[in-house]
Design a protein around this nucleic acid. Structure first.
Lengths: 209, 209
DNA sequence: AAAACTATGTCAAGATTTTAACAAACATCT
DNA sequence: AGATGTTTGTTAAAATCTTGACATAGTTTT
């Protein structure tokens, strides 16, 4: 029986991965939970507890091997495999995402960019032409699409999500300003930029006190 | 003695605000925590508990007045005031954020866009010209800049953040792929897009089991 | 105006998450 | 090789967060 791991832990993993990547770049070979905790401003106990959800990656008296741990967390997060991504909505944000992901993360590959606006048809964004939404079913049939990023107005988000699921795409990276929580059989990750900005705004007002 | 309100609560407020906004648009006048809980897929108890951190906005036997509660949460989040924002880094993401007019509807106004690249100088993004980073000190002196969005490479993020703080900008909306946590006297909100993508990737692998 | 109903605000229990503590395991030093 | 020091994995305690329960206050019905 696999114990379900809490999302709180999952949210922290990419951060560990990032710090370990930096250590790796700096040529650091090993690190203790204590040293890492000082760099990351979290408790050493939390680091050990988090990692031990997935297995014993360290060694008493030695610590953790940076390259090994980095790779293991990469495996857990699935970033050592390639994931094909399409972007639905070729507005500013869609174009930015199409460019951004390709450069930041090797494991994620943008293979298609779609929009409903005929004026955008064929426009090149980086090395990808904007395709029309009508071409989507064929495209998905002929390509192994794992993730769809939704960068479109909230009015169209839900219907598009439903369509994607029916076409066989079961993971959605949602930038539309709406929750897509009552769609079955799909994994959703929401990025609500304005929510994030509102949190900042709240924390500003607290800071002033 | 103000009790400190947990970030878990703050993270939920924008979502309440969004749902209440939709109810408002739909002409709904009042709502009970129970009805809202069904729409939002959270417990009614959590809604009441969250709201009561800030005061008694409801009324027994009646529920909550939608317009009033929406407005109150808006006040708490500070979105009923105007916040001036500048964007540092006029690449794809910076241009997307700058052009994201949607933010203005919740009180955030983009008033400047900066980059180091001379080729971009004067380029218009929506109605804003890209300015050079050297112009930043004067600009901040002459304008009431509250928030800086950092959409630049991680190598430059920290030094830029320090500079901003020294110029009097004490709130940073950070999109660079690095943590800016050891800078004093500044409120930071991180948006790590690739972290979010990795969480999605992890949840995909769990979903497949 | 009284009776019946509704739904908040709040308290307390339950669940989860985080932190502290430490024995066991291994590394390093002499 | 033995002694000393380090650091993990793990257990348990502490802290925090979420949920359930209900008295009270107000609404609606008759």
């Amino acid at each position: 029986m696999d114990k379900q791991i809490s999302q709180a832990v999952i949210r922290r993993l990419p951060r560990y991965y990032r710090y370990l990547g930096e250590l790796l770049d700096d040529g650091v070979e090993r690190i203790s939970s204590n040293d890492l905790s000082k760099r990351m401003h979290v408790t050493a106990s939390q680091i050990r507890q988090d990692l031990n959800n997935f297995g014993g990656f360290g060694q008493q008296g030695y610590g953790y091997n940076v390259a090994y741990l980095h790779d293991e967390i990469g495996n857990i997060l699935g970033v050592n495999d390639t994931h094909n991504v399409i972007v639905i909505g070729a507005g500013n944000l869609g174009q930015a995402i199409a460019g951004y992901v390709k450069f930041e993360r090797v494991g994620f590959k943008i293979i298609g960019l779609f929009d409903v606006n005929p004026e955008l048809k064929g426009k090149m964004v980086r090395d990808l032409p904007v395709q029309m939404l009508e071409e989507l079913p064929d495209f998905i049939k002929n390509n192994d699409v794992e993730i769809a990023a939704l960068t479109l107005p909230k009015q169209n988000a839900k219907s598009t999500a439903l369509k994607l699921v029916s076409l066989g795409v079961h993971a959605i990276w949602n930038f539309a300003h709406v929750d897509l929580d009552d769609i079955p059989d799909v994994v959703i990750e929401n990025v609500h930029l304005s929510d994030s900005l509102m949190q900042l705004s709240y924390n500003i007002s607290q800071h002033k006190k």
